[in-house]
Design a protein around this nucleic acid. Structure first.
Lengths: 225, 225
DNA sequence: GAAACCATCGGGGATCACCCTGATTGCACC
DNA sequence: GGTGCAATCAGGGTGATCCCCGATGGTTTC
């Protein structure tokens, strides 16, 4: 999609949600001609009703909002999105605190920019969200990418301590760490509970742990489960 | 930062890395005047050397590349980035496979767009990367956001369930999840082991867990320890 | 072929974990 | 002033956990 087809297409219908009326009117004035502000709301409840009524393409959504059940912008997304399937949400906030970003992104926002952005930048961001893009302020980009990298790269590596356990001991260890009782482990490995006991003792001794609870924590830390 | 100051600033110095010469020349021709292509490379080794030599602001980097140790674009980032601290990498690829995206993002790329993008789109993406933004194609935006939500959201959800526990119960829960025995918890909180038992029972019931092992796993998953 | 593991099994016993049914105090809400 | 909840504690019980002591047979290693 090129800029030409873009400018030639109809203006982008948006709704502004923010509890500060001065900010709303400033934003309305600063947005460029490619953005068509269809409505405004100042509280969680008003915003939900307005979004469902107007079905805008994009909602410019403040993160901190009064009303509703105190969920702020995230609550608006959760409640309005099911009834507005073609609406996308772009979070606007003065804050770049991790918990704010997390809550709205999890709720389904397609972007997050700070209020220090200019009208032109917000306009561009709204269009990009409408195109399906994810938009983040420079400050947050690194944060999001780090989190993404963390979830994508969780492949635990070699553990020298693990090598000290025999194959059977490792097998028993994994089951014990998952919380299975001696009897259950015995049943699933077709051996006696007493044998399981012996293996567990060996595992605890070799790993210098003192209980199966520590074993669970040990295994979880190393992502062995 | 407005568009005006942007256009007024010097052209953005970039390097193109791709093993297809036709694509390189097409990209060079299609990029707008705000982009200054300083050089091109076709292999991993050439790319590393060129990036270190020219220190461009942005590298337009193909994901699949011959040469090096077979690491493709990710290898270029890993080897060149330490010696080019002010250089940012924007991945370009025909593929939108998860593993390709993951490898270059983990290596440190600040964006990932598919080769179906127009020259204007690549130009804009390069400028946005230079500003510190994270750029993703629409197709990938959802993928990245999902992954982000997955890793970042558990802390948010945990608080909801956590609120169902009284202050004292949370206190006991943390100690139990760390593997302390009833007696130890009792000693450190100056209450009777029997009271600890009562609290633990309440915690397990409220969280719908059946043993302290599950509690340990529950707490670790939510990074409460 | 002895030494060093590994895997298998058992008895006995001390402690721990978990559940049940109680109880008391204090605090807040209506 | 009753109703509810959080926090404290107790008795009694069942089963699980963990350690001690053993044992047998198999493989690998030197």
């Amino acid at each position: 999609m090129t800029d030409v087809t873009f400018l030639a297409s109809a203006a982008l219908p948006v709704v502004i949600v923010d509890d500060h009326s001065i900010f709303r009117s400033g934003l309305r004035a600063e947005l460029d001609s490619g953005i068509d502000v269809r409505g405004e709301a100042a509280t969680v409840d008003d915003a939900i009703a307005l979004v469902i009524e107007l079905q805008p393409r994009v909602v410019l959504l403040d993160v901190h909002l009064p009303g509703g059940r105190g969920g702020g912008g995230a609550e608006v997304i959760r409640d309005a999105a099911p009834a507005a399937p073609n609406t996308l949400f772009l979070a606007l906030s003065v804050s770049d605190a991790a918990e704010d970003v997390v809550s709205v992104i999890r709720a389904g926002a397609r972007g997050y920019i700070t209020k220090s952005a200019s009208g032109a930048e917000v306009s561009t961001a709204a269009r990009r969200v409408a195109e399906g893009d994810a938009v983040f302020s420079p400050k947050l980009a690194g944060f999001v990418l780090d989190a993404f990298g963390a979830v994508a790269g969780e492949t635990a590596i070699a553990t020298e301590e693990l090598d000290r356990l025999s194959a059977r001991e490792q097998q028993v260890m994994r089951l014990i760490a998952r919380g299975y009782a001696y009897k259950e482990v015995a049943g699933s490995l077709f051996i006696s509970p007493k044998t399981v006991e012996t293996h567990v003792s060996a595992v605890l001794r070799k790993l210098q742990l003192s209980s199966r609870h520590e074993l669970t924590a040990w295994a979880l830390e190393r992502k062995l489960l």
